Simulated scan of single mutants.
Amino acid sequence: MIKLNLPDYNFKFKNSENKTLIFDNLRKKYMVLTPEEWVRQNFVSYLIDVKKYPASLIALEKQLTINNRKKRTDVLIFDKNGAHNIIVECKAPHVKITQDTFDQIARYNLKLKANYLIVTNGLAHFYCKMDFTKETYIFLPDIPDYN
Rank of each mutant, 00 (worst) to 15 (best):
F78Q: 14
M1C: 03
Y46W: 01
K129D: 03
K14A: 14
D79I: 00
D49T: 15
I87V: 04
I87S: 02
P7Y: 09
V88W: 00
Y53G: 03
R40W: 00
H84Q: 12
L4N: 09
L6S: 09
T133Y: 08
N121M: 08
L110H: 09
V50S: 11
H84V: 06
L26R: 00
N15K: 14
K3S: 13
L47T: 02
R27G: 05
K134F: 07
A83V: 13
K91N: 00
V39M: 04
L112W: 04
A106C: 13
D142Q: 12
A83L: 14
F102L: 15
L26Q: 01
F126H: 05
L47D: 04
A55Y: 06
K51T: 01
D145E: 15
P144W: 00
P54Y: 03
F139L: 06
T34C: 00
K19G: 03
K96A: 15
Q99W: 08
T20V: 13
P35Y: 08
T120K: 06
Q63K: 10
K70P: 08
I87F: 02
G82T: 05
I77N: 06
L117I: 10
G82Y: 05
Y127A: 10
Q99H: 09
I58E: 07
D74K: 08
P93N: 02
H84D: 14
K19L: 14
H125Y: 00
H125N: 02
N67F: 09
N121D: 12
F132K: 08
N25I: 14
N15Q: 15
L64W: 02
N18Y: 11
K28H: 12
L117N: 10
V119C: 14
L64Q: 02
K19Q: 14
P54W: 04
N81F: 12
N15G: 12
T98P: 06
L110F: 10
I48E: 02
Y108P: 05
